[in-house]
Amino acid sequence: MSPVIAAHGLNLTYETRDGPVHALKDVSLSVGKGEFVSFIGPSGCGKTTFLRCVAALEQPTSGTLTVNGMEPDAARRARAYGYVFQAAGLYPWRTIAGNIALPLEIMGFPKPERAERVARVLKLVDLEGFAAKFPWQLSGGMQQRASIARALAFDADILLMDEPFGALDEIVRDRLNEELLRLWAATGKTALFVTHSIPEAVYLSTKIVVMSPRPGRITDVIDSPLPRDRPLDIRDTPEFIAIAHRVREGLRAGHGDAD
């Protein structure tokens, strides 16, 4: 089966006043359908840049990148992905339902279908009954769930998430991680997930991509042996701890030869 995302020898260089910055150097990766891939690494390792390349928000300097077998730009127009940013980014002047309907309005879905889709994804993220509320009436965790619902509303089969839970506290984050796994299992989406947290990466992923900065590159790709069905307490098992250890080693190695 052809991969959903295929990157070969991807490079991205920014020209700055202090000379060129290698945001991505020789990044090759392939992601299969239904995988949950986490990108982990320190700031400046290019994990967000890679996600933005997939979303056609950045243009790689060289190398090839295909999304669903298409150029990223074409994939975006074909509604290949939903993007969840670090901040929920809900419009304060729209209700939760109005916010989720926003991409549907932009994409030209007819009104009855919009209402039906909004109701469906609200149910999916457990926010039924909050449709008419305004964002400020919801907690940070609920806002982020609404933003995930918005990304799911138009049935993209790829979910790109850039530290979606980075600003939330540990307890809320745990619960949302659990819910995200449930959502992923229920919808069969391919997920790309950027994070700073080792436990989060190991808990969620079928594949963990460890990256390091200056230049931004992949130092390790770990295929998780954990089963797809994961209760929260799987984090106390030796398998989990072993993977977390390998991620930590990868991060340390990446840091060592960069400095």
Partner: peptide, 26 residues
């Protein structure tokens, strides 16, 4: 971020104005 978000939905400049910039400016 809000502008990038609109770009991920392939919003036209008109939609960017009517649905984001104008209400934000009220």
């Amino acid at each position: 971020m809000q502008i990038d978000q609109m770009r991920t939905w392939t919003a036209t400049p008109g939609q960017m104005f009517w649905k984001l910039r104008l209400p934000a400016s009220v």
